[in-house]
Amino acid sequence: MESLGDMLKQLPNGNNALQQAERLMADLLADPLVEGLRSKYPELDNGTIRLNLNRVYQYTKEYKNCTNCPGLDRCPNDYEGHYTLLHCETVGGRVQMTDRKVTCKKLLARQSEEQIRSRVRSFYVDERALSQGYSADEIVSKDLERMKAVGQVLNYIGRTKEQGLQKEGLYLAGSFGTGKTFLMCYMLHELAKAGFTGAIVYMPDFVEDLKSLMHEQGKLKETVDLLKETDLLIFDDVGAENLNPWVRDHVLGAILNYRMNRKPTFYTSNYGLEALEKHFSFTNKDGDELHKGQRLMDRIRPYVETVFVTGHNKRGK
C-alpha cells in the first residue's frame, strides 16, 4: 500500500510542493475518520496528529480499503487480512499515539474454517464433500422425503454439542444416492466447529489399500491408531468392500473393539444390519464364517441408532 511518504515524493519540487503537502495534510485533518478519532480521544491535538501523520494516513487509507474490500486474495493493505487501529494516551503530560494491526473478520472466518477442516481427516472421500460448507436450511430442504432421517441427524448433533461425545453412533441405511454421505459430512463439519475431531473412510478403497499395507507395519499402525483415537469415525459405504479375513478380524475388529464404549462410530450402507452381518460372514478366501460375522456385528449393532434414509437418487443431478 502507498505510504504518505511515497505520496509526498511524487509531488513536484518547490513552493508548489509545500503548498500541496499542506493541502494534503489539511485534507487528512478534515477526514471524518480523523474527526471521529479526535472525538474518541479529546486530548488529541493537531501537533500530535502532525507528528504521527504517517500513522494517521495509514489508518484512514486501510479503513477505506476495508470498507470497499475486494476480497482477501486481493487485499490492498500492508498485511493481508489486517488493518490499523490507533490508540492515544497521555504520558508525562504529553499525548502519545500508538498503532496496532488487527485481524479482519474475513481472515478470522478463513482461519476458523481452516481450523475446522484440520480437525477432519478423510480417506478416499472427495474433499469437496467436506470443504464446500453446509447450511441447516439446505440439509432440510434438499429432499423432503428424507426429513425423518435429517431430524435424527440434527438431534444427534444437538445432543453431542450439549452433552459431549456420545458412546452410540448412527447407522445410515438406504438406497443409492439418497444423501447418506452428505448427511455424515454435514455432521462432521458441524461437530468440528464444536471442537471434535473426525475421520471419514470410504470402505471399498480403504480395504484395498489396507491389503497393500500388510507389509508396512509402521504406516498401518499409524492409520489404525488414528481411526481408534479420533472422536468421530465414519465408515462410508460399508458392505461394498471386498473383505478378506485379515482386514475383517485384525483391522476392523481391532478398531471397533477399541472404540466400543469409548467413542461413537458411524456407518453409511446400502445394507440393513442383518444383510451386513451376512456380508461380514463371507470372504472369498474362507467362505462362510457365521461366527466371525456375528463377532464383528456385536461391535456394531449395540452401539448405533439406525437411521433409514429415503428419498430420490441425487447422483448426477
Rank of each mutant, 00 (worst) to 15 (best):
R295K: 07
N261R: 14
V120W: 01
K161L: 07
R74S: 10
E114W: 00
F176W: 11
V95S: 04
L227Q: 01
D6T: 09
Q19N: 09
G316F: 08
E35I: 14
V307S: 10
C69F: 01
W246D: 00
Q152T: 11
G133K: 03
G158F: 02
I255F: 12
R117V: 12
K61I: 02
V224E: 06
L226T: 03
D286A: 07
D45A: 03
R248H: 03
R299C: 06
L11F: 15
R23V: 10
Q115R: 12
V140R: 14
K9N: 08
G174V: 02
T223L: 15
L154S: 12
V125M: 06
V307R: 11
G93L: 05
F182H: 15
G179C: 07
L170R: 08
R248D: 05
E35F: 09
I255H: 04
Y156P: 08
Q10L: 13
T48K: 12
D205M: 08
K40Y: 03
K148I: 15
A21W: 04
S175V: 02
T265E: 08
T306K: 10
T90N: 00
G151M: 10
D27K: 08
A136D: 11
V102C: 03
V238H: 12
M184L: 15
R259A: 03
M184R: 00
F282L: 10
L4W: 08
K9G: 06
E35K: 13
E241T: 04
G239F: 13
H215E: 15
S212M: 15
G239C: 09
L276A: 02
P302Q: 13
V34C: 10
G293N: 08
Y79S: 07
L11W: 12
A129D: 09
A254I: 02
L188R: 06
L296W: 09
G293E: 00
E241C: 06
L37D: 14
G177I: 11
L107A: 13
R23C: 10
L44K: 15
R159T: 05
V307P: 13
L51E: 06
E274W: 02
